[in-house]
Each structure stands twice: as C-alpha cells, then as structure tokens.
Write a protein that binds this DNA or RNA. Structure first.
Lengths: 194, 194
DNA sequence: TTCATAACCGAACAAGCTGTTCGCTTATGA
DNA sequence: TCATAAGCGAACAGCTTGTTCGGTTATGAA
C-alpha cells in the first residue's frame, strides 16, 4: 500500500505473493464463479497466510484491480488505433475476449458476479463519449448525449456478456457486425442531424 | 411452495407473513442496498420468526420473485398494447419506473446487486425477439437475430439502470426518445434488408 | 362454538466466512 | 553480514446462514 511510484523496484516476495493470489483468484473464479469463491479458498490455493492476504488486499474485489487496469488500457489503445471508423474499439475488444476466453469469461460473464462490469462500463462510456464529441462541431453537444452513450455502451456490454457466457457461439466479426448494424445508423443520424 | 393454483384461497396468516417479509425486504433494500441486507435484518423488520422465513422462502432472492412476476407482466402487457410502434414497451416501462421510483431503484440500480437484472433481461429478450420475428416475413429469421436482440435489450437496460440510479435526471419521454433514436434506425435497416 | 390442524414462534445449534492481532521465522537487498 | 521488511499461522470475536424441535396460537371448517 505504500508509495507505489512506478520507479520503485518491488520486493520479490511481494511480487510473488501478489501474483500467486491473483492467479489463484482467477483460477477459482473460472472454476466456481465469483460469488462462490471465498478468501479462505484463495489463500489456500495461493498457499499464502491469511494475514498476508489482508496485508496486500482489502478484499476479493480488490485483487481484480490489476486485471481491470490492464483491460481498460487495452480498450483505450484500441479506440485510439483506428480513429476513422466509428467505435473502432469494438472488433479488437471482441477478439481480445475471444483469446483470453477463460479470464474474461470469469470476469464479465454471469459467473463474474457483476463485480467488474461497472468499472469496464465506465471506461467504455468515457471512450464513447469522447469519440462522439470529436465528431461533432465544437460546442454543439446535444443535451442527451449521455443517454446516447449509455445506449451504446449497454448494447456493447450485452454482446460482451453473452459472448463471455458462451451462450452465443459466434465469431468476433459477427459480434462486431451486429453491434455496428444496430447502433451505427442511429448514432450517425444523431451526429448529422445538426 | 405447494400447489399455488390460482383458485386456492390462501390462509390469511400465510398472506400476512409473506407480505410482511416482502415489504420488509424492499424497504431495507431501498435503505441499504441489496447486498447489505441480511435475512436476519429482514425477519427483524418483518417481525417474523427465523424458521418462518425459511418455511416460505429459500433465500433473499426468492422473496423478490413475486415483485418480478408483476414487473414482467407489466412489460408483456405494454408490448401487447401498442403493436404498431416498434418497441412499444419502452415508454410505458420508463414511466412505470418513474412512478415506482424507490422500489425499482432498489431492484434495478447498482444497489440492486444485479440479483434481478438477469431475470428482467430475459423477459425483455423474449418480447423483443417475438416483435422482430412478427415484422419479418415468415421463416426469414436472420441467423444473427439473437445478437440484435441482445443489443436492443442491452441498450434499454442501460438506460433503465442509469435512470434507476438517478445518475441522469431525465423524463421518461427523453429516455424513450434516446432509446429509439439510437436503436430504431439500425433495427429498421436490418428488417427491411431482406 | 368447538376443534383438528396448519402456521408460527424462538431458542439453540453447527458450520462457515471475515478481518484482525501478535509473537515468531525467514527471505531480501544494501 | 545483518537490519528489516515480509510472511507465517494460530487464535479470536463477530457475523452470517440454514436447520431443528417442542411448545403456542390463529384459522377456517363443521
């Protein structure tokens, strides 16, 4: 918890412990689902003392913070990579999910217990919001912009969750196509309306 | 749990007990949020014996079944009422939410703990799916219909959640307008494509 | 009104989880 | 080499859940 400055080298023991806990939690979530995993399970699997766990993390939830930061970074990078296409983050994200199936499934699907979804939603909302603003004449933000953002993010997250749950066996391309087919026309209309 | 045939008269004590528990739970969720409410809290507030609770319900979650059934019925009725407009359930639902603010807020917002959302999503998905099918030539269901349904439901639920959380102070009409503006053009295009 | 019965009570229980404490041991990196 | 930060693990109080069971009371039918 002390100064986490990026320049500081971290004690190897700390690194090992944190990693062990993180991996243990993810593995257990994949196996049983978020809600069913207890701290006791995690420390047993990670082979770490109880007090050690609480010395590093406050919570089950807290352990996932690192993973989330990583995922959020990926989202931001994806959206910056293809600025010409509307909602360019979509396809890369679906592909990313497809690769890291187990982990993302554990975090975003129903088994994830919704502990993580709100965080991703917020990151996504920021991205979508800025993308829309950048395509509007400066200072011409419609009053209901946030509602549009919520719609878009909601649609995307719904596809994500379904895919993570494996309820729909589809390719990233199909998911991306469906997302754009449903959402893009409406958004384009809103953008060009003014 | 025994035969719940609609014709059977239910013992007054049973009715009273169930109602007391239901009301207690809802009130507590509104106050503290779903996750923070324990069964012990509920029976204390409802002034009901512990064993009595478990004689009627298996769970916190189980108690909400009745409320959910009611809400689902409302959704179905709304969609049947205006069959000429695309996604006619939208406006009535937003209005309904606006009225029963506290309850729905407790169940659908962040404080609801996501215990209820999946259920509503499924009811909604069925409605949307059938509405889309009814607007297509018989037997011409596109293979990615379920993806489209997921998108639409996701967008709607996102607006619902935001409104329930009070993060956006908007009128039902505005919500409905945004929902249709974003989603309708894309869906119309998909429908007329064939 | 009577009365068999279903519903309720509530105390007690086992089992489980959480988060903290504390004295002791060990790995680390300067 | 060695001071120190990290980890250990047992023990703990406090909370939760779900079940059991003998005794009490309201209910609705006769």
């Amino acid at each position: 918890m002390s100064g986490n400055g990026s320049g500081k080298e971290i004690d190897r023991r700390v690194r090992r412990t944190r990693e062990a806990i993180r991996k243990a939690l993810v593995a257990l979530i994949v196996e049983r689902g978020y809600d069913a995993v207890t701290v006791t399970d995690v420390i047993a699997r990670a082979d770490v003392g109880r007090s050690t766990f609480y010395a590093h993390f406050t919570d089950k939830r807290d352990v996932l913070a690192a993973n989330l930061e990583e995922l959020a970074g990926f989202l931001r990078a994806s959206s910056a990579a293809g600025p010409d296409r509307l909602f360019a983050f979509s396809l890369p994200m679906f592909e990313h999910i497809d690769e890291q199936r187990d982990l993302v499934r554990a975090l975003l699907g129903r088994r994830g217990g919704g502990a993580v979804v709100p965080y991703i939603e917020q990151v996504l909302a920021t991205i979508v919001r800025e993308e829309l603003l950048s395509r509007l004449p400066a200072g011409a933000a419609p009053s209901d912009l946030d509602l549009v953002v919520a719609c878009v993010v909601g649609a995307f997250m719904a596809l994500l969750a379904r895919h993570a749950d494996g309820e729909i066996s589809t390719t990233p391309r199909q998911l991306d196509a469906a997302f754009h087919a449903v959402v893009a026309p409406g958004v384009q209309a809103i953008l060009h309306q003014r």
